[in-house]
């Protein structure tokens, strides 16, 4: 069985285990017979219905767009900050305590406060996602930059490279495996913050759809939304992992990213 699975390759074994999980769900639900735990088939038939509805589709799309915006902003901000921290002790010392205190705070929990400041619109949601993605990105960029081989930098200096050029031409490429690991964790984080902030704010978006279904006791819809969000998480991670492997094929295969990596 084991060797048979291995021969199938990772893609096939993933599909197979996905199928096995769905079958398990189906069986458990049919055995349990609880209203709040419908079988997989009942939830899965709702998926195309939800996705076929213009309104819910737009809502999910808007969620993803906000997630993309928050993530992109975090990328532009957090990576340079993290790299600079990794190469400059003073900057690291200055930011360290601030980041340390911020780390265990659930970023989505800031939603009520941020909504007081910026209203219930997109800005608040994008900002929360930005905060959630920034921390793991800074963390991993810091580690990557910190571990850059000094001798590489010495040779760059000897060639007359200026500090800013060194940061982007030497430090960033050397730290890329770590930065991309941070991106993967950040991606997971973005999705989590997106869903949880929408569950808290209850204005619009995928998290709101999920809880509306719960409020209206549409259990099939609840589970269908869970399936949709799970699929989004899985697909995003899969796509990103492809890109990551492409970009850092030169680095040794590192330990798999431990998704997810911290503060929401």
């Amino acid at each position: 069985m084991k060797s048979a699975l291995r021969k199938l390759g990772p893609a096939a074994s993933t599909v197979l285990s996905l199928g096995a999980l769905l079958v398990l769900w189906e069986i458990l639900a049919r055995l349990a017979q609880i209203d709040g735990f419908p079988p997989a088939t009942e939830a899965l038939v709702q998926v195309p219905l939800i996705l076929g509805e213009r309104e819910s589709l737009a809502s999910i799309g808007a969620s993803l767009w906000r997630m993309f915006l928050g993530g992109a902003l975090a990328l532009c901000f957090a990576v340079p900050v993290g790299l600079a921290m990794g190469r400059n002790k003073r900057i690291a010392q200055a930011l360290n305590p601030v980041l340390t205190a911020a780390y265990p705070i659930p970023k989505a929990a800031l939603m009520p406060i941020i909504m007081l400041w910026f209203g219930v619109g997109d800005l608040s949601k994008v900002l929360v996602i930005f905060l959630g993605v920034s921390l793991p990105l800074i963390y991993h960029s810091f580690h990557g930059a910190h571990a850059v081989d000094e001798k590489l930098l010495w040779s760059a200096m000897a060639m007359g490279m200026k500090p800013v050029a060194r940061l982007f031409k030497v430090v960033l490429p050397s730290a890329l495996p770590d930065v991309l690991l941070g991106c993967r964790v950040g991606l997971a984080m973005a999705l989590i913050v997106m869903i949880s902030s929408e569950m808290i704010a209850r204005q619009s978006g995928a998290g709101d759809l999920l809880f509306n279904a719960l409020d209206m006791a549409l259990y099939g819809d609840v589970y269908a939304m869970i399936v949709i969000l799970a699929a989004i998480g899985f697909v995003l991670d899969w796509v990103f992992e492809r890109v990551r492997r492409r970009l850092v094929h030169w680095a040794e295969s590192r330990q798999d990213a431990m998704v997810p990596g911290g503060g929401v």
Binding site: I226, A230, G233, V259
Partner: peptide, 12 residues
């Protein structure tokens, strides 16, 4: 399969 799922979505 399970690791990249946003677990918070399972809360409901």
């Amino acid at each position: 399969v399970l690791a990249p799922i946003p677990k918070i979505a399972l809360y409901p």
